[in-house]
Amino acid sequence: MRSFAPPLACLWALVGITAATASEPVSTVRIEQAWARATPPGVNVGAAYAVISNRGAADRLVAVESTLSEQVEIHNSSQQAGRMQMRPVAEVDVPAGGRVVFEPGGSHLMLIDLKRPLRQGELLSMTFVFANAGRITVQLPVAPIGSTQAPTSAHDHHH
C-alpha cells in the first residue's frame, strides 16, 4: 500500500491545483467570433472583427494589440452626409451584461503598418486590453480578402 502513496499524493495535489484555479475569479468578459481578413499585397492595413460579451459588471476596452501590426486602432463607422466615415476612438464601453460588436461595414479594428500581408487560413494573435478584465489574447482565423463573415471552419478549403 505504501508504494501507492506518492502517486496518490500527486493526484491530490493535482486536484488541489485544479480546484484553486477554478475558485479564482473568472473574467466575465469574453472575446467571441473573432476573425481577421486577408489583405492584398502592397497594402499595409487590414481589418479584424469580434464580438465582446460581458456577463459581469461594466468594463472598458482600452487597447488592442497584434503581433503582426505596429498599431491597432478601434474604429467607429457611421454614415455622415452620404459618406461612410470612420474615426479612431480611444476606448469602448463594454456595458454590464452587454455586447460590443465589430463587424464589416460597421465598427472594426484597423490593423496599421502590417509587417506582412495577412494570409487566408493562418491565425493572427491579438490581445484585447480591458480596464478591469485585463489582457485577453485570442487567435483569429484569417478569412479570404473582403469576406464578410468568419471562416466557417479550419477545414473549409477553397480553391
Binding site: R37, A47, H75, S77, G105, H108, G146, S147, T148
Partner: peptide, 16 residues
C-alpha cells in the same frame, strides 16, 4: 482607396 480597411474590400469582394 487601397488603404481603406473595411468598406472597400467588403464591396469589391461582393462585386467579385
Amino acid at each position: 482607396f487601397t488603404r481603406c480597411p473595411d468598406v472597400c474590400p467588403t464591396e469589391l469582394f461582393k462585386l467579385s
